[in-house]
Design a protein around this nucleic acid. Structure first.
Lengths: 336, 336
DNA sequence: TTGAAAGCGTTACCAA
DNA sequence: TTGGTAACGCTTTCAA
């Protein structure tokens, strides 16, 4: 590997001049040409480490998320990577496996590696972790992509607004003639989806329907269940209560998949007997049968916007924190 | 951030001694204790850049893959990350979007960042890219996770053997009474799956069944189709030829999903009229209906083994290249 | 066992 | 516009 010294010698100038040419400092056209030629000839690339020991910039950002197999995050990664790469950043993906300890360990490692910023999404509620990230945000550019962080001020956040869109989906079911709308949620410590749940309650109210805890299911926080299991067990539980139910709304597509599975096993027809609505608009919505009506999160917009804000924060532009809440969009398919 | 200097001053020793303590050089117990205490007190962490400018090690590895939304790679990432993290490596994920130009661009960037090694998977056949990676492998530790690279010597490779396992699956269908077994593959430039296809032919032979190109479908290389579309169009094409078909094998679960979709639209019963077999054992196999019989790749073993080999290569242990081909495992579900 | 000092390859300051 | 030189924070000789 050739160094800046080799370039300087070949071009007949000093290291400083070479550095200036690279970093767009002022120099004469002749010097510039000579340096550029030398760089070309030697196939010179500045050393990543040497450069960053001075600048303290790593040209890396991290995407810290709970689970890359969740299709929402898979898509998000792809978008983030694309924008990042266009701006010469590399992205370090950290899958924290829903584990707060991992989150903090990873982030400490990332700080040591001087990541220029990070995009952080989770969906567990854990006061200690939340305040860790919020206060970290004062010293490191962070964009939160989690609606639950809405309560904190002075942080930048891009997320799908779950309240309004869920309440509108209730209205949609109402207009389809459904009057007994159930809801299956993640456990109460998954904070993002609690706002979707609030939207459900608001929607019932708007339609003049009574709320009943008999048609609502939350798994216990202690049990570690994935979305599909929650949906499966939730549907079973709800139907075992002998309540009239003609629609089930869920806090996530994964949950709806589990519900779908249980209903089919019981020969309950979707949507004839029970309508089903998810949240996210994962690729699976088109694959399962019947295809799943869902509230789509605008993942690409979230990713692009979050990256744009992050890059601005890193560059020190646009200092005031940005708070952007995107609207969920009801995608109607065959399950309603 | 405190530096090695601060530690040295607080411990009353020189920088050199501090460095030695950290890197297990020889020193007196007293010195060691003083330094450790100082490190503790100052919450000192060696600077990542300063350290690596000397050692030329980044403690990062890269996972270069064509598409993170392919569940095979999603799972692989999780396994690789886990092993990497346990050995203090961070992983840089590069989703190349099936694009050879991106692959090479990414890798040049990675080289500049001095990644200690990389795990490389693709599935396109492209002589130029292949030889790029093979010859890169001489100067940088690489583990290939692609069966297609089998032909190159002096490289390390961990992959699922597709030939034998596919031929055994043919035998399985034969034993179930199927005599008209069709095959749907990716286009011919997707090299990994061509060996699965060869296994299909071998399987027919073993069972004394005649091969017929009338029941085989390859999409054209030029059309950019995802797996699901290939399956959907492939099934339509095959069935339009008025050949007798009582089973369809596919080179990937994604393809089988498309086949499943088309057959259901045509009211063709699975498995009563046509059996269906995938390859990979994605999570979706359990979700679609009927659940999908498939040849499982041992993803976790592949990931763990690949990482172990990579780490050994990085550390200079186990120099002879390793070539490990794992057996695919037929998982029987309701589609057969 | 220890410390001084010379690098590693950059950037950034300051004079010229 | 230039070049010399001092950092940046570490590792690694080399003497002591």
């Amino acid at each position: 590997m050739s160094t800046i010294w080799d370039v300087a010698k070949l071009a007949g100038v000093s290291k400083s001049t070479v550095s200036r040419v690279i970093n767009n400092g002022s120099c004469s056209p002749e010097a510039k040409k000579a340096v550029l030629d030398a760089i070309e000839k030697l196939n010179y690339q500045p050393s990543y480490f040497a450069k960053n020991i001075r600048t303290q910039k790593s040209m890396s950002i991290a995407l810290v998320i709970p689970d890359i197999s969740n299709l929402f995050y898979t898509e998000l990664f792809k978008t983030v990577q694309e924008v990042a790469y266009a701006h010469q950043y590399m992205v370090i993906l950290c899958d924290t496996q829903h584990n707060s300890d991992y989150e903090i360990k990873y982030v400490k490692q990332l700080i040591n590696r001087k990541v220029d910023g990070l995009i952080y999404g989770t969906y567990k509620m854990d006061a200690k972790t939340q305040s860790f990230f919020v206060s970290l945000s004062e010293s490191l550019p962070i964009v939160f992509i989690d609606y639950a962080y809405k309560r904190y001020e002075n942080i930048s956040i891009v997320a799908t607004e779950g309240y309004q869109s869920t309440s509108e989906a209730v209205k949609f079911l109402y207009d389809k003639g459904r009057r007994h709308i159930a809801y299956i949620n993640f456990s109460r410590d998954v904070e993002v989806t609690q706002l979707r749940y609030q939207g459900y309650i608001k929607g019932l109210e708007d339609c003049g329907l009574a709320y009943s805890s008999n048609v609502v299911y939350f798994p216990s926080s202690r049990k570690k269940m994935d979305g599909i299991s929650i949906g499966y067990h939730g549907a079973r539980k709800l139907l075992s209560r002998n309540q009239k139910i003609d629609a089930i709304m869920t806090a996530a597509d994964q949950i709806a998949i589990g519900v779908n599975k249980y209903l089919k096993e019981q020969k309950i027809r979707i949507p004839d007997d029970i309508s089903l609505v998810g949240f996210d608009n994962n690729a699976i919505c088109e694959i399962i049968e019947p295809t799943l009506t869902t509230i789509a999160q605008p993942i690409n917009s979230i990713g692009t916007t979050a990256m744009q804000i992050l890059i601005n924060k890193i560059k020190g532009i646009d200092n005031p924190e940005q708070r952007i809440f995107m609207k969920g969009n009801l995608i109607q398919r065959n399950s309603t």
